[in-house]
Design a protein around this nucleic acid. Structure first.
Lengths: 344, 344
DNA sequence: GAATTTAATTGCAACGTTGCATTCCTTGTG
DNA sequence: CACAAGGAATGCAACGTTGCAATTAAATTC
């Protein structure tokens, strides 16, 4: 029968939290020695180190985060600034899952800072910087001259961005290779016999947008295709987008190949086209950037090019952790190869 | 010219972080007085309190989280255990967004703990309990005798669940009223002239599952309808589900009304039915539980019943915060009314 | 004007950790 | 045998905060 169990009811016997002091008392060593030993002090006798390690293990010692943080300033936290965009379906879940996978077994926790308006997101970063709320930050949807990036570079604060920028100073990033994406998509559509391509790409504030459009234009010029670009439509609702697709379908000179970089917009597009009686894969060919399993489930025959967001989460985190440990920036940049999923 | 600016480059002039000591020096008061004042000590002279408040404001003082946490044990963190389920599309994003909305302006941060296997999620809770990692926890997908709930009740640890349980002891929860959902759906289909209903509902480990099935059976019995229940299919992949829908469509005695509680499964279902040539809204009527805007965008004519996950996140958080502040459990239980979206 | 009450402020210790400077204990050297 | 040199362990202060006990200042009483 356990007397004086903590009300917390934790599995720990004998009440109270296990601290360095507990181990010190148990081993008869001093606080400092225990601390030193646990952090691998090489000046300690092997026998002592073993004794400490054993005691720590048997007691299930875990260093107190607040104590460490107060003393060292290290938070053991990484922060994800979660953009509110819905373009990539299931993006948030997979990203978080990936980060979770990467920090598994480390002492890091993940705090998520949801963002409601993109244009105030510099405030978010300011807050983290001023209050040293995390050891590092992951941001997404970067712009060519992203203010947040600028701030963190200036502050020499560890971060990694999902997306490139145009800054001269190198910084860690991970990015989907949109140029390759656009090129692959154009080539594929051309090989299917398309002559008139349309690129649908929203959010013209991001670096990604610029990269896609440029690569699209280069590739189509090379193939000598007629083109149209529909961009800067981040404000357009799915319903409006759908409406637009219906109008498009009824146009005489409508495109016979469409490339779309957002799942959400693809869905609106497909909804509209279908309603207008367009037969996908015959009247119009479509290639979209795929991040979730939804569209393949619905339309197994439609081509897509996949970005693995879960893997992105893992990679972003690894880059960030290495950055926190002081690795050189140049070694912390990575581009993900698009994964074509041709379905026929 | 600022000498000794922090390398952090924060906007703060004169280097260094602002602490109670800074304010104490500035006002000529003692540390204790400043601390007391900031927490609203009523024994202080009004003049003093004003002086402190003013200094704090002008310096942009924010209490150090590590200091507070070490001293008081209060983490100012709430933890979301994020289930890996993909049933409700966009669930994670909206939930997090909702929580973010609810903690805006408070001192709380949100840490997200992604879960990879449901069956080890008790370990996650154990970890939080043992290490006092958060002041409160939000869990989802609760089971009737959920082990995590049991643990937290035993430990008297603040939490709130998205979903009810069958425990005798009251605990805070928020839940979608699935019984009403099932009843509404059955009534609607009956009114459309359906005679043979099928309920598709996965994950038979949750309380939600049980509630839906029971209500479905009661409602259909009342209307005297032929029924079929397809459940316990949480392991089935979208592709398999799709396949199954195709087979179903070709069955002679196939149902003429389907109720589905998962968007992901609805999509697989619809994909299969369409491929088999079934015309939704004529051959077969469908009602699904809607959490994202995807299906309405694709099929504006299909009925759905909506759960507002963003609102759920807000409500869950408010319940949790009140629980942390010691509100009585009985006042912390809330059921969300399903929102029918009849499209014709 | 001394004693007593009340109002206002403060010192001190503690939360758990770490890094530096110090002390203690061996062992080896002249 | 005294002394130095190294190896091994420890004491102390500090990170920023809070709660209590204690102190000081001001107001009231007799």
């Amino acid at each position: 029968m356990a007397i004086r169990t903590t009300p917390s009811g934790s599995g720990r016997p004998g009440g109270g939290r296990v601290t360095l002091r507990t181990i010190a008392q148990m081993t008869g060593l001093s606080l400092s020695t225990v601390s030193l030993s646990l952090r691998g002090g090489t000046t300690l006798k092997q026998e002592t180190r073993d004794k400490v390690a054993e005691a720590a293990k048997s007691l299930g010692y875990v260093p107190d985060r607040a104590g460490v943080r107060l003393r060292t300033g290290k938070t053991n936290v990484i922060a994800l600034v979660l953009d509110g965009a819905e373009d990539s379906i299931d993006f948030a879940r997979q990203m978080i899952q990936g980060i979770g996978q990467a920090i598994k077994g480390t002492r890091y926790h993940l705090t998520v800072i949801p963002e409601f308006e993109r244009n105030i997101s510099a405030d978010t970063i300011r807050y983290v910087l001023d209050n040293r709320t995390a050891d590092g930050v992951i941001i997404t949807h970067t712009a060519p001259r992203d203010r947040r990036v600028q701030m963190m570079i200036d502050a020499e604060f560890p971060f990694v961005s999902h997306g490139r920028t145009e800054f001269f100073t190198a910084h860690p990033f991970y990015d989907f290779h949109s140029e390759v994406f656009a090129t692959q998509a154009v080539d594929r559509l051309a090989s299917k016999g398309c002559r008139h391509l349309m690129l649908v790409v929203g959010d013209d504030s991001t670096t990604n947008h610029h990269n896609i459009v440029t690569a699209f234009q280069r590739a189509t010029a090379r193939c000598g295709l007629e083109v149209r670009v529909l961009s800067g439509i981040q404000g357009m609702s799915p319903a409006e987008m759908r409406r637009m697709a219906i109008d498009l379908a009824r146009e005489p000179g409508r495109p016979d190949g469409i490339i779309c970089d957002s799942e959400m917009r693809t869905i609106a597009l497909v909804g509209g086209l279908m309603e207008a009686g367009v037969h996908l894969g015959r009247d119009v060919h479509l290639i979209y950037k795929q991040t979730s399993g939804i569209l393949p489930t619905l339309f197994p025959a439609v081509d897509s090019i996949r970005e693995d967001v879960f893997a992105a989460g893992i990679e972003l985190t690894q880059l960030l952790l290495r950055r926190i440990d002081g690795a050189p920036m140049e070694s912390l940049q990575s581009l993900a190869e698009p994964q074509p999923q041709w379905r026929s």
